[in-house]
Nucleic acid binder design. Structure first.
Lengths: 151, 151
DNA sequence: ATTGTATAGTTTAGTTATAAACTGTTCTTA
DNA sequence: TAAGAACAGTTTATAACTAAACTATACAAT
């Protein structure tokens, strides 16, 4: 969903218009960023989703698929498919422990991690280079408030 | 992409950490909102993508498919598929004008628009109800700055 | 011990999106 | 007016995701 700044019906208050516009802007920023990231990551034959997995599994030891799903705000079904593919490629391996699959990077996966993560994080951080440090703090604070409200 | 708040390598500055966290928060808010919206819209057998189309076509007269794609920040290929389906359902019709398809709502589509748009906009606006009016203004301003920087 | 419940992961069918190649139309310009 | 550029829309193959149904395991509680 990415729109409706212009569907204001006459009875809408300014405040509601602002809320709708907020949603529209967040969508635009998100969609733009994700597209740029995908483009950028193609240099390493990685998708944005795979990059996310790489970062999480590379950063947190002993993660299960369900924990990964929760971290990334996607379903466990999605993770099952993603991991299977990354395992086939040879970036990730799984060790069964009771009911859960414990995830880890293979040496090749670790190498990819070291190579791509710093560059991609710089790239992502650069999206906010138009803001001063103080503005970033404020923005972070306000988004945090929105987030807490979501539950 | 929705993550990496925790992949900070030691040499990252606070400012860069903040930028990465900003990206993480925006992703979370976006992903949460889009999921909630989809859930909510299911009451009308609408997807979030279809809702976006409904709003744009219902609000702007004489829109082409390319213009719609630009507004929604998606590809024209995506729009071609979306519109085809919504035409089949009977919410939208197209009139060929030179090279372009001019889009409009059918009476059924207009009825759906009147029914669902105000409710859904309230729903979307409610995501920001945790903020005061001033905070919304500030947030809108800062996101606008980020957006202008994207080009 | 048995039965029930919760949980982790898998599978399936369907949707939404993309990129890229393609078709066909309109416009330029020389 | 013919060639070619530019553009609108379509198609195709593929990725990423969801919901829901499923399997299988672990754990509790009586």
């Amino acid at each position: 969903m990415s729109n409706n700044e212009s569907s204001f019906l006459p009875q809408k208050t300014n405040d509601e218009k602002r809320s709708l516009n907020l949603w529209f802007r967040i969508s635009r920023i998100y969609n733009y960023s994700i597209r740029e990231s995908n483009m950028h990551l193609r240099n390493w034959n990685l998708s944005a989703a795979q990059f996310d997995v790489l970062v999480q599994v590379g950063t947190h030891e002993h993660m299960s698929q369900q924990e990964l799903a929760d971290k990334l705000f996607v379903t466990k079904g999605n993770i099952a498919q993603l991991i299977k593919k990354m395992e086939d490629i040879g970036w990730i391996y799984r060790v069964k422990e009771k009911k859960t699959n414990v995830l880890a990077l293979t040496p090749v996966g670790r190498q990819l991690y070291n190579e791509v993560v710093p560059v991609q994080e710089d790239f992502q951080a650069a999206q906010f280079s138009g803001l001063t440090s103080d503005e970033k703090k404020t923005l972070l604070h306000l988004l945090g408030k929105v987030q807490r409200n979501m539950q």
